[in-house]
Amino acid sequence: MAVAEPPIVEIVGLAKSYRRGDQVVPVLQDINLSMTRGEFVALMGPSGSGKSTLLNLIAGIDTPDRGRLAIEGVDITGLSEGELARWRAEHVGFIFQFYNLMPVLSAFENVELPLLLTRLDRRRRREHVQLVLELVGLADRADHYPSQLSGGQQQRVAIARALVSDPTIIVADEPTGDLDRQSAREILDLMESLNERLAKTIIMVTHDHLAAERAHVVRHLDKGVLTDRIERPRARATG
């Protein structure tokens, strides 16, 4: 057996609560979770269970009250707002339920956005963008605007945007929540292949069982507590 890889996501005793008037509403209580490189984890749970909050914390767009949250060994809970922004640009790829593309920018320009925060020159940026657009099968739609694309195509552009800076982790919040069954299946196929062929670490929040089935590990959240853990054998397992 190979020596166990160090976890890429390591969460210990993470807690988060919201203040609503005078009341403190706990959202996450004592979360412990670890993910290895190349793992594909689905977070499921009823509305208000805190799964989106957990995803936001891992993505570095929200901050916990206490606990340790380390990505590749770096505890991001101690980073300042500016450091966190730079960290996100380098390490996190986002996929949203409603794609969140800039309507006034073309597919190419949307995908290029994260690269504007890097030191890459124009020519290198172009190469990167074209590469990921080919990867998601939209190389011929580079000049199209989001309004000229179908929902499934828009989500592909968003996936290309999430991939372009080669992030450490990809976080996906209900990536199929706004898509018809066929488009949803295509998006899940794409995500699965990214995970299998490019060894991308993906953490996905979903309500959809079909989506969750694609993950290696399904974790359930209920009232801010992680409950069971269901594993599914890896498709590319060498046996």
Binding site: A59, I61, E81, G82, A85, R86, R88, A89, E90, V92, F94, F96, F98, N100, M102, P103, L113, P114, L117, R161
Partner: peptide
């Protein structure tokens, strides 16, 4: 607003 949130998530600063 959502676009601003997206840009910030992608790493653009305030």
């Amino acid at each position: 607003t959502a676009e601003i949130g997206t840009l910030r998530a992608l790493g653009f600063r305030r």
